[in-house]
Protein backbone atom coordinates (compact mmCIF):
# COMPACT_ATOMS: atom_id res chain seq x y z
CA UNK A 1 0.00 0.00 0.00
CA UNK A 2 2.69 2.40 1.03
CA UNK A 3 4.43 1.73 -2.27
CA UNK A 4 1.54 3.11 -4.22
CA UNK A 5 1.32 6.17 -2.03
CA UNK A 6 5.01 6.73 -2.48
CA UNK A 7 4.64 6.57 -6.21
CA UNK A 8 1.75 8.99 -6.07
CA UNK A 9 3.74 11.43 -3.99
CA UNK A 10 6.94 11.05 -5.90
CA UNK A 11 5.29 12.04 -9.11
CA UNK A 12 2.41 14.04 -7.80
CA UNK A 13 2.64 16.51 -10.68
CA UNK A 14 1.71 13.82 -13.17
CA UNK A 15 -1.13 12.64 -10.97
CA UNK A 16 -2.48 16.15 -10.82
CA UNK A 17 -2.49 16.51 -14.55
CA UNK A 18 -4.16 13.14 -14.97
CA UNK A 19 -6.85 14.16 -12.52
CA UNK A 20 -7.34 17.50 -14.20
CA UNK A 21 -7.50 15.85 -17.57
CA UNK A 22 -10.18 13.47 -16.43
CA UNK A 23 -12.17 16.30 -14.91
CA UNK A 24 -11.96 18.21 -18.17
CA UNK A 25 -12.82 15.18 -20.22
CA UNK A 26 -15.80 14.44 -18.02
CA UNK A 27 -17.04 17.97 -18.40
CA UNK A 28 -16.69 17.86 -22.17
CA UNK A 29 -18.61 14.64 -22.48
CA UNK A 30 -21.15 14.75 -19.69
CA UNK A 31 -22.10 18.37 -19.19
CA UNK A 32 -25.15 19.54 -21.06
CA UNK A 33 -24.30 23.21 -21.00
CA UNK A 34 -22.20 24.28 -23.94
CA UNK A 35 -20.17 26.79 -21.98
CA UNK A 36 -19.34 24.09 -19.47
CA UNK A 37 -18.20 21.91 -22.31
CA UNK A 38 -15.83 24.63 -23.42
CA UNK A 39 -14.57 25.06 -19.89
CA UNK A 40 -14.04 21.33 -19.78
CA UNK A 41 -12.05 21.51 -22.99
CA UNK A 42 -9.91 24.24 -21.48
CA UNK A 43 -9.23 22.22 -18.36
CA UNK A 44 -8.35 19.26 -20.52
CA UNK A 45 -5.90 21.27 -22.56
CA UNK A 46 -4.43 22.97 -19.53
CA UNK A 47 -3.77 19.59 -17.99
CA UNK A 48 -1.74 18.67 -21.02
CA UNK A 49 0.14 21.95 -20.81
CA UNK A 50 0.96 21.16 -17.21
CA UNK A 51 2.24 17.81 -18.31
CA UNK A 52 4.60 19.43 -20.77
CA UNK A 53 5.78 21.91 -18.18
CA UNK A 54 6.45 19.06 -15.78
CA UNK A 55 8.49 17.38 -18.44
CA UNK A 56 10.73 20.38 -18.72
CA UNK A 57 11.60 20.45 -15.03
CA UNK A 58 15.22 19.82 -14.18
CA UNK A 59 16.09 19.47 -10.50
CA UNK A 60 17.66 22.67 -9.32
CA UNK A 61 17.25 24.26 -12.72
CA UNK A 62 16.40 27.87 -13.21
CA UNK A 63 14.26 29.67 -15.78
CA UNK A 64 15.81 29.38 -19.21
CA UNK A 65 16.63 33.07 -19.59
CA UNK A 66 20.00 34.19 -20.78
CA UNK A 67 21.19 36.44 -17.98
CA UNK A 68 23.65 38.44 -20.01
CA UNK A 69 22.32 37.72 -23.40
CA UNK A 70 22.81 41.23 -24.68
CA UNK A 71 26.46 41.43 -23.85
CA UNK A 72 27.60 39.49 -26.85
CA UNK A 73 27.93 35.92 -27.95
CA UNK A 74 30.71 34.90 -25.62
CA UNK A 75 28.92 36.08 -22.54
CA UNK A 76 25.84 34.19 -23.62
CA UNK A 77 27.79 31.00 -24.02
CA UNK A 78 29.31 31.45 -20.64
CA UNK A 79 25.94 32.01 -19.12
CA UNK A 80 24.58 28.88 -20.73
CA UNK A 81 27.37 26.69 -19.56
CA UNK A 82 27.50 27.80 -15.97
CA UNK A 83 23.91 27.62 -14.91
CA UNK A 84 21.54 24.64 -14.92
CA UNK A 85 18.44 25.56 -16.84
CA UNK A 86 15.19 23.73 -17.16
CA UNK A 87 14.47 22.50 -20.67
CA UNK A 88 13.08 25.49 -22.59
CA UNK A 89 11.71 23.56 -25.53
CA UNK A 90 8.51 22.28 -23.89
CA UNK A 91 7.83 25.80 -22.73
CA UNK A 92 8.05 27.09 -26.25
CA UNK A 93 5.92 24.26 -27.54
CA UNK A 94 3.31 24.94 -24.93
CA UNK A 95 3.31 28.58 -25.77
CA UNK A 96 2.24 27.60 -29.25
CA UNK A 97 -0.25 25.10 -27.88
CA UNK A 98 -1.72 27.81 -25.69
CA UNK A 99 -2.19 29.97 -28.72
CA UNK A 100 -3.99 27.12 -30.37
CA UNK A 101 -6.10 26.55 -27.28
CA UNK A 102 -7.03 30.21 -27.16
CA UNK A 103 -8.01 30.14 -30.81
CA UNK A 104 -10.10 27.05 -30.24
CA UNK A 105 -11.81 28.66 -27.30
CA UNK A 106 -12.46 31.79 -29.32
CA UNK A 107 -14.03 29.80 -32.13
CA UNK A 108 -16.05 27.82 -29.64
CA UNK A 109 -17.35 30.96 -27.98
CA UNK A 110 -18.21 32.50 -31.32
CA UNK A 111 -20.14 29.37 -32.20
CA UNK A 112 -21.90 29.42 -28.85
CA UNK A 113 -23.03 32.98 -29.46
CA UNK A 114 -24.43 31.94 -32.82
CA UNK A 115 -26.15 28.96 -31.26
CA UNK A 116 -27.65 31.15 -28.60
CA UNK A 117 -28.96 33.58 -31.19
CA UNK A 118 -30.50 30.69 -33.08
CA UNK A 119 -32.00 28.58 -30.34
CA UNK A 120 -32.18 30.92 -27.38
CA UNK A 121 -30.52 28.45 -25.10
CA UNK A 122 -27.18 26.95 -24.28
CA UNK A 123 -28.55 23.70 -22.92
CA UNK A 124 -27.91 20.81 -25.22
CA UNK A 125 -31.26 19.20 -24.38
CA UNK A 126 -33.21 22.29 -25.35
CA UNK A 127 -31.31 22.66 -28.59
CA UNK A 128 -31.82 19.03 -29.44
CA UNK A 129 -35.49 19.32 -28.65
CA UNK A 130 -35.76 22.28 -30.99
CA UNK A 131 -34.04 20.39 -33.74
CA UNK A 132 -36.19 17.34 -33.16
CA UNK A 133 -39.32 19.42 -33.48
CA UNK A 134 -38.08 20.22 -36.95
CA UNK A 135 -39.42 23.69 -36.86
CA UNK A 136 -38.88 25.34 -40.18
CA UNK A 137 -37.78 28.60 -38.68
CA UNK A 138 -35.04 26.83 -36.82
CA UNK A 139 -33.66 24.59 -39.44
CA UNK A 140 -33.31 24.80 -43.15
CA UNK A 141 -32.74 21.11 -43.33
CA UNK A 142 -35.85 20.42 -41.32
CA UNK A 143 -37.90 22.57 -43.64
CA UNK A 144 -36.74 20.55 -46.57
CA UNK A 145 -37.53 17.36 -44.80
CA UNK A 146 -41.04 18.56 -44.15
CA UNK A 147 -41.48 19.54 -47.74
CA UNK A 148 -40.27 16.13 -48.71
CA UNK A 149 -42.89 14.48 -46.57
CA UNK A 150 -45.75 16.50 -47.91
Amino acid sequence: MSGIIEIIFAEFNYWIYVTLMMIGFYAMIAKKNLIKKVIGANIFQTAIFLFYISLAEVKGGTAPILLHGHDGADAAHKAVSEVIYVNPLPHVLILTAIVVAVSTTAVALALIIKIYEEYGSLEEDVILAYRRQLQPEFSEHARQKQEGEQ
Binding site: M28, A41, A108, L111, R131, E140, H141
Partner: peptide, 26 residues
Protein backbone atom coordinates in the same frame (compact mmCIF):
# COMPACT_ATOMS: atom_id res chain seq x y z
CA UNK B 1 -23.49 26.43 -43.42
CA UNK B 2 -27.18 25.94 -42.71
CA UNK B 3 -28.45 28.41 -40.20
CA UNK B 4 -28.47 26.85 -36.74
CA UNK B 5 -27.72 23.30 -37.79
CA UNK B 6 -24.37 24.26 -39.23
CA UNK B 7 -23.28 25.97 -36.05
CA UNK B 8 -24.36 23.10 -33.85
CA UNK B 9 -22.64 20.63 -36.13
CA UNK B 10 -19.55 22.76 -36.04
CA UNK B 11 -19.63 22.96 -32.27
CA UNK B 12 -19.94 19.21 -31.90
CA UNK B 13 -17.09 18.77 -34.32
CA UNK B 14 -15.09 21.28 -32.32
CA UNK B 15 -15.55 19.37 -29.09
CA UNK B 16 -14.67 16.06 -30.72
CA UNK B 17 -11.83 17.64 -32.63
CA UNK B 18 -10.42 19.20 -29.48
CA UNK B 19 -10.45 15.85 -27.73
CA UNK B 20 -8.71 14.31 -30.71
CA UNK B 21 -6.11 17.04 -30.98
CA UNK B 22 -5.47 16.94 -27.25
CA UNK B 23 -4.90 13.21 -27.40
CA UNK B 24 -2.47 13.72 -30.21
CA UNK B 25 -0.72 16.48 -28.30
CA UNK B 26 -0.45 14.19 -25.31
Amino acid sequence: GDRGDGVVASFNYLIMGTVAASFILL
